[in-house]
Computed example of a mutant assay.
Amino acid sequence: MGTEVVELDRPPRLGPLYRAAALRRGTAADPRLPERALVLRGVRVDREHMAEYDRVCGFRLRDELPATYPHVLAFPLTLTLMTGADFPFPLLGLVHVENRIQVLRPLLSSDAFDVAVRAEALRPHDRGTQLDVVATATIDDEPVWSSRSTYLRRTGTGSDRSTPDGPKERARPPRPSATWRIPRRTGPDYAAVSGDRNPIHTSRLLAKAFGFPRAIAHGMWTKARCLAGLEGRLPDTYEAHVAFKLPILLPATVGFSTATDGARWTIGVHDTRTGKPHLTGSIDTVEGGHGSGPPVR
């Protein structure tokens, strides 16, 4: 059976989706991912919104979209898919553990493109079950950008480690290239500009209810901040793969480390006191690259 394509005529409203997420309980007895892709055609960028995103994440104001910005544009479709009745897990409790973005062509704020979101690759993990949510952007059916987010549904007690082909943290963190002081408002500010209003990022009280001593930074904000730190030094087409490690408790002071051999950047964000990693990753040039799957027609 092929993937059903569901075309939306407008971006979904987030309020009802968050209410659905809050009410959802329980896991499907026989978990299966929905065999459908959600598509929104002719997406255009709100330049004022992108400027606010740039401010929150540390990018310079320019016409080219940050590599992480289409992830925000795809978020309403992602939330629609993951709060649907046929999605096997409640959204609350899923942990975003990895993200891989491919930039196959620089996107400009004047571009119109189609965005599609689907879920795939349900698989066992030693701490539960993993799955990928894939978002793609296409222009005239040609992939120009993709994002693959890996989520973990915890049910086991195994060790928490990167996937075998994923980026590994170093035994000792390198000397940071920069030190970031991240204010408490970073959580609410990114929630407002991204639409991702998970309370663990905005409320100390609700973060404690989920086991955190205080609110934590969004993983995708951390990735965006890393790419902003390399702005002007990355190629036009590249793949940025990161693993999210220990959460950043807000406010925080962290070290941002970079190294390159000319073909690959290695990046990391570490606690300045303990050296423990918050994020590890790599950035590689994509030569005539291909996205995370064929365009959805």
Rank of each mutant, 00 (worst) to 15 (best):
G158H: 13
Y53E: 02
V193M: 06
M220D: 06
H96P: 07
R123F: 06
V95Q: 01
R36E: 05
A116M: 08
A74G: 09
G293M: 08
G219C: 06
V193F: 00
S194F: 08
A215V: 08
R153W: 11
R62W: 14
S292M: 15
R60I: 05
P294W: 02
D189A: 15
E287G: 13
P34L: 08
L152K: 04
H71Q: 14
V144Q: 04
W145G: 01
D111G: 02
D165T: 11
L246S: 15
M82A: 10
R100H: 08
R24D: 03
D114E: 14
F89N: 04
S110C: 12
R153L: 13
R123A: 14
E120G: 00
G293S: 11
D189P: 09
W221S: 02
P124E: 03
G291I: 02
D114M: 08
P70T: 04
R185F: 14
P188S: 05
D9E: 15
S149F: 05
G156I: 07
E231Q: 11
A74H: 00
A119D: 02
G93E: 05
P188R: 02
G166S: 09
T129V: 13
R44Y: 12
N99A: 03
R123W: 07
R214S: 01
R153F: 11
A217V: 00
T138S: 10
E142F: 12
T202E: 07
W145E: 01
A51T: 13
V39N: 07
V5H: 13
R10H: 13
R10T: 09
T179S: 12
G255S: 06
D86R: 09
R181I: 14
V103I: 09
H270P: 07
D30I: 10
N99W: 01
S110A: 15
R225A: 00
G291N: 06
V45S: 04
H71E: 04
V97N: 00
L206E: 03
T186C: 10
D261R: 02
R25F: 12
T274R: 15
L8R: 06
N198E: 03
E231S: 03
E7K: 15
W221G: 00
E98Y: 07
G293V: 05
T272G: 12
H125R: 11
L65K: 06
F87N: 03
P31F: 01
K208I: 07
V103F: 10
T272A: 10
G219H: 04
R197Q: 12
D140P: 04
P251D: 06
L206N: 11
P247Q: 03
R25L: 13
L206H: 00
A116Q: 05
P294Q: 14
P124N: 10
R10N: 09
E142K: 15
H270A: 05
V117S: 01
K208A: 14
P88V: 04
R127T: 06
V95T: 10
F244Y: 09
P76R: 02
D196C: 08
R44G: 07
R297M: 11
R19H: 12
P143F: 08
E48K: 13
R148F: 05
R55W: 13
D63F: 12
S109C: 14
F210I: 08
D111T: 02
A228K: 01
T253K: 12
V193L: 01
A207D: 03
V296F: 10
D236N: 14
Y53M: 07
G2P: 15
C226E: 01
R181G: 11
R62C: 14
I283Q: 03
A207Y: 02
E142L: 15
R41Y: 14
H49F: 09
